[in-house]
Design a protein around this nucleic acid. Structure first.
Lengths: 257, 257
DNA sequence: ACTTAATTGAGTATATTTTACTCAAATGCT
DNA sequence: AGCATTTGAGTAAAATATACTCAATTAAGT
């Protein structure tokens, strides 16, 4: 959506009427693609900075619902992992009408004032399986893109911090939340799985020990097939045993006694 | 503060003028007292339910600052651990004028309407050392009390859930945040320390292994004194070696490879 | 058909940590 | 002095983590 039609204006007038003011949602949408951890970002039509998806909370809607609705609008997917990981509430946390390129959208004064106010944002992360399914940009924005998390794109506002915190939350949740169900495709290899862990943790892992640990945990089932793609020994394909995987997750941190 | 004087009204009129609407802070204030984990709660003058401390965020104030200000008003202590652990945003999350006993406070209509609106609350927990320092109740409320977390007091709104989540957050943060600096007095014994861990984790710990682990971590320094209070072998007193303790904390979760 | 480069699958040996115990030491009370 | 109770110290076995080695498998090159 790049131009403000009358319909858009009506939609926005309606949004600011039914939403809680000064409170927003932001969601870091992750996927694992080509051995890289990626997240969704988009640009304002006239802007240079990247924004992660966001939205507002309706008066009659709980915050988690709002996050889910927002996520559905962008992915068309219903059943997604959605985890809250923090609040971003700096006193000067607002969109900049000039530098962010909002001014040039020529929106009505009341809408402009509403959306450029100071906002406290509740941050979620979400994980989707690597597919070709298109990601829809939020209104205001041009097309959404997948950015590699290791590349440092210029993000707007505090969105760099939000993405960094989301990655930390991913790492913390790796043993307690069923992230693999969303991250991995139906069939995958252990080396691919290791690359995901390494991308999330930001460090390398011993190959043999990783394999041993994963196989011992009991949620990897051999398909009997191999992934023949290169001139090396082809890795074996596995799929997740969902129940065993869920059961292997643990709420409590290891304390050592 | 139990009656609405003119000064109170002015204060409240001012609060709703300068604060972000529909956004609140709640803080679970913990201490370890008589071998029990306790938290601060207070009652409305005409109410039967307990409330944990809360407050609002000024327009020109970041959320963390607001939590800190709010906490200072109640404890008169500046340098406190303050950790955000979640957002509570149910769509029907509001004070009930009748059952919570707000109506009987006879506050101005606009103030009543403001504070009984739907609020999204950002939750923090905080830890203070066990002392005799008085806790001041927020305005609206009568005196603040320390409640044992294991006793199930009737809490207002979703405050039971907030307290439960705070305790989970405590457990998660036990190895990564310097909670002992706030929880423990200058001198303490290892059995006392174990009781704190058990209260936070909600399970018992093997005595010998706990002692071994704590001593090996290197942040417990013998004072040479013992705590002679009963007809058993008196436990030795220790104090925290702050640097060693801070260094022993770790950001990353144990993954096993 | 054999060699080579690259990577996977499997395994081993050692060090470290966790877990489940035992037992002597210290205290106040009888 | 004997008793009940809890602390301090330690040990042995089990489980886990860490650092490796080496054969197996594939496609490309010769």
């Amino acid at each position: 959506m790049t131009k403000f039609t009358e319909e858009n204006i009506d939609t926005w007038e309606n949004t600011i009427r039914i939403s809680i003011p000064q409170l927003s949602i932001n969601t870091v949408i992750f996927r694992f693609h080509n051995m890289k951890l990626q997240y969704v970002a988009m640009k304002l039509v006239h802007g240079n900075l990247w924004f992660i998806p966001g939205g507002y909370v309706c008066q009659d809607e709980c915050v988690a619902e709002a996050a889910r609705r927002n996520l559905f609008e962008q992915t068309q997917i219903h059943d997604l992992v959605l985890n809250e990981f923090g609040t971003f509430g700096a006193s000067d946390r607002r969109m900049n009408a000039k530098s962010d390129g909002i001014e040039q959208l020529e929106m009505p004064e009341d809408v402009l004032e509403w959306i450029t106010n100071r906002f406290v944002s509740i941050a979620y992360y979400s994980v989707i399986t690597d597919t070709n399914a298109p990601i829809t940009a939020s209104s205001l924005y041009s097309d959404a893109k997948w950015l590699n998390i290791e590349d440092n794109y210029p993000l707007a506002m505090d969105h760099s911090m939000i993405v960094a915190e989301a990655r930390k939350a991913l790492a913390k949740d790796l043993l307690s939340k069923p992230l693999l169900l969303s991250f991995m495709p139906e069939e995958f290899t252990i080396p691919e799985l290791q690359k995901l862990y390494e991308a999330i943790l930001g460090r390398s892992i011993d190959r043999g020990n990783f394999r041993k640990r994963m196989l011992k945990s009991g949620f990897l089932i051999k398909t009997g097939l191999v992934k023949g793609n290169s001139r090396q020994r082809p890795p074996e394909l596995y799929h997740l045993h969902k129940d065993n995987y869920i059961n292997s997750l643990t709420e409590d941190v290891k304390l050592g006694f």
